[in-house]
Simulated scan of single mutants.
Amino acid sequence: MVQAKPELKARARELRQAGKTYDEIVAELGVAKSSVSLWVRDLPAPKPSVARARMMAEARWGPYRHERDLARERTVAQAAAELGRLSPRDLFVVGVALYWAEGTKSKSYRFSESVTFVNSDPDMIKVYLAWLGLLEVAPARLRFSVMIHESADVSAAERFWADLVGREVADFGKTTLKRHNPKTVRKNVGAAYRGCLVVRVLQGADLYRRIEGWWSGIVCGVREPETGDRVQDPSRVD
């Protein structure tokens, strides 16, 4: 055993220089941890690998993130329950605000009275289409198309949006491809990236004018609440 120790020491130093921990060296050589400590104490401690650093970070912060995620899910679920099912008037007002935030609008430098809504959020599209249904806009007046980066899975995106709105891909207008710029670091990549859906309403000038008027009515209808009207929880406003 005495003759073997120089070889073990040399091997222990090789392993330490390769980034192994004391426990890993002990497990491989089958020697006491005190011996390993003595043999390699003059060598710098290895920097943790990326995988090890992630494992250590997960061990430390994982429980905290888990509790945070649970708390977030509880809050979201509670808030959703507070809102409940929308009345037709609720949906009407939501739809007007949604369109005025996300839809195309006529500008002083570009007059246009078209009703076009573009969004990448499937839930936004669902709410918008429900609103158009409330307004009795006939499905035959709707035209759909996709806007997406050319580097994405265009066919999969077209199928996704077609399924969402209950149409065939063949019924869609020509997809608009955005030119890919390799110098641009985009976050909207991967299988979840499906571009944007464009929803146009044919013969929409009259509808656009009404939307503009409805939005103006919302703005004029907003008043600063008096002291007695203020509440901490907006969900309890009558």
Score class of each variant (00 low, 15 high):
3 Q>D: 14
3 Q>T: 15
5 K>T: 13
7 E>N: 13
8 L>V: 09
10 A>P: 06
22 Y>W: 08
23 D>N: 14
29 L>G: 08
30 G>V: 07
37 S>V: 04
37 S>Q: 14
37 S>W: 05
39 W>I: 08
41 R>T: 13
43 L>Y: 03
46 P>Y: 08
47 K>M: 13
47 K>F: 03
48 P>R: 14
56 M>L: 11
57 A>C: 00
58 E>R: 11
58 E>W: 04
58 E>P: 01
63 P>A: 02
64 Y>S: 01
65 R>S: 05
66 H>D: 10
69 D>L: 09
70 L>H: 00
75 T>K: 15
80 A>N: 07
81 A>N: 00
83 L>A: 12
86 L>T: 03
88 P>L: 04
88 P>K: 04
89 R>Y: 06
93 V>E: 09
95 G>Q: 05
98 L>Y: 02
99 Y>D: 01
99 Y>P: 00
100 W>D: 02
100 W>N: 04
101 A>W: 00
102 E>Y: 09
104 T>L: 04
107 K>D: 05
108 S>M: 05
111 F>T: 11
116 T>V: 03
116 T>P: 03
118 V>F: 00
124 M>R: 03
127 V>G: 11
128 Y>C: 11
130 A>V: 03
131 W>H: 02
131 W>M: 02
131 W>G: 06
132 L>G: 06
133 G>Q: 06
136 E>A: 10
137 V>N: 09
139 P>N: 10
139 P>R: 03
141 R>C: 08
141 R>F: 09
142 L>T: 12
143 R>S: 07
144 F>G: 13
144 F>I: 05
144 F>Q: 10
145 S>L: 05
152 A>Y: 05
152 A>F: 01
154 V>Y: 04
154 V>N: 01
155 S>N: 04
158 E>G: 01
158 E>P: 00
160 F>G: 09
163 D>L: 03
170 A>C: 00
171 D>G: 06
171 D>W: 01
174 K>F: 04
174 K>A: 15
175 T>V: 13
176 T>H: 11
177 L>S: 08
177 L>E: 07
179 R>K: 10
181 N>L: 09
182 P>Y: 08
185 V>T: 09
187 K>N: 13
189 V>T: 10
189 V>M: 10
192 A>E: 04
197 L>R: 02
197 L>F: 06
198 V>Y: 03
199 V>W: 07
202 L>G: 14
205 A>G: 07
206 D>W: 00
209 R>D: 02
213 G>A: 13
213 G>Q: 13
214 W>F: 15
214 W>Q: 11
216 S>L: 02
219 V>N: 06
219 V>P: 02
219 V>I: 08
220 C>L: 08
220 C>R: 13
221 G>F: 05
224 E>V: 14
238 D>M: 01
